[in-house]
Design a protein around this nucleic acid. Structure first.
Lengths: 245, 245
DNA sequence: GCCTTCGCTCAGAGCCCGCTCAGAAGTTCG
DNA sequence: CGAACTTCTGAGCGGGCTCTGAGCGAAGGC
């Protein structure tokens, strides 16, 4: 069982919580990240530089590491080598500035690791991590697949494909992330703030009004002409529900 | 057993009372809040700034913290970090002014923490706290679910759904809160003043007449054509009772 | 039985919330 | 370098929600 009730957690094969090390020199960002990962039911530890990252990894023996490429003392790649020395099969998710060295990252990620560019949304980080862990055989049997289903609505996270009763629905990146968040929390009212904090980048300064706008976009594509699955709860937020039988 | 007789308290897994730290620089507000939380059967301690909050947390080791974002000495994020350092799984409920536009700290609700805007109602604060604690695994086993049931009337707090004998009932935010308060105190007469203090915001200047009005609204939706569950006790208040068999 | 008190309900005003449209700025891709 | 797409802002509108006031009915005291 997850911290987030009702949804099964992604765990290690023996049932113990997945262990993740977060390495970033911005303490606020590290705090937000580790909060989100703990919310997934995972065990989290933070480090703010390369040295303490390696030390932390030795203690925690993490299954995955979220690693900022730009660190005060070293760069991420040196840390990566040390990490692989500690635990060869560790998954690494790099955090990197958009304009920086994408080619070098590409070389690294060929090995099965992955990266996201700053500024990112928490949904994206969590989704990538889940993908990495799943591929590393971390899923507790069958219950954790790359496929989300709510009623006749289905999402293949890896193929980035969404269908409703078999019909393919094309979504923009933000629409996709919003729908993923909704589908990962079916039958639960989500406030606009929750959605904003989770689906939009952490540096987004805008109003909750965008959420309304994107809900409106989603409705046009997901609910179009069909019995609605996205419901407004006035004064509270939005819910995704399978249509009542 | 709870201070509020007849209703089982939300307790820690070992049966001891939930421990909550209230941090606000307004002593009156802190007093009202801690009163309401003690009424839930919880152990409460107060602090009026960030420094004493961290100190208090170290002593009390609280399960949850009610934390005003606007503190004289620090910002919410720094306090959040300190609190998580003391106890990684602590839940935080932030209090924030509605018009203080950009004190919304991005990502605050992403880690499973929550917030309410001032002015708030006590029911809302308590409900949010209960939600946080429940998700953190604080519920004494099965008896405390996200579901309130009185007779054939049922409320799912997370989905914000109310049904009577299976039929869905649509409620406005205030109606919902009022009914939640009634359902959390079944078979107990609640005075209009009690209801006003609990369901309406603390800065509400209006008359007790609104309570009558909203009871009337609720009756139309909840009791409509069915044997009544909401009863008037003249000169005393209202009771919610399951229909006699 | 009458009068007072208390509670119920209707109607309406004002406000706030959420939805949508249109367009500007930025991004991606051919 | 242009075209298509995506994201976000601003404004307007429609309607739901909350509360006030008034009138009416019921309960209970004298």
């Amino acid at each position: 069982m997850n911290a987030r009730s009702g949804r099964p957690a992604l765990t290690r094969p023996d049932g113990t919580p997945v262990r993740v090390l977060v390495v970033d020199d911005d303490p606020d960002l590290a705090e937000v990240l580790s909060g989100a990962l703990r919310y997934e039911g995972w065990e989290v530890r933070t480090a703010r530089d390369g040295a303490s990252a390696v030390a932390g990894a030795r203690e925690l023996l993490p299954d995955a590491v979220v690693l900022d490429v730009m660190l005060p003392d070293t760069n991420g790649f040196a840390v990566l080598r040390s990490l692989h020395a500690v635990r060869p099969d560790v998954c690494v998710l790099f955090l990197t500035a958009r304009d920086a060295v994408e080619d070098r990252i590409a070389g690294i990620t060929a090995g099965g690791d992955d990266y996201v560019t700053k500024p990112f949304s928490l949904e994206e980080v969590v989704a990538r991590l889940r993908g990495l862990l799943r591929r590393a055989g971390m899923a507790r049997q069958l219950e954790e697949g790359p496929r989300l289903v709510v009623g006749d609505l289905a999402m293949d996270e890896e193929a980035r494909e969404v269908t409703r009763s078999g019909e393919l629905i094309e979504l923009s990146p933000t629409e996709f992330e919003l729908l993923r968040f909704l589908m990962r929390n079916p039958r639960r009212v989500l406030s606009k703030t929750q959605i904003l904090d989770r689906v939009w980048s952490y540096d987004f300064g805008g109003q909750a009004h965008v959420v309304e706008l994107y809900i409106s976009y989603l409705r046009k594509k997901v609910d179009a002409g069909r019995p609605p699955m996205i419901h407004t709860v006035r004064g509270a937020g939005y819910v995704l529900k399978p249509v009542a039988r």
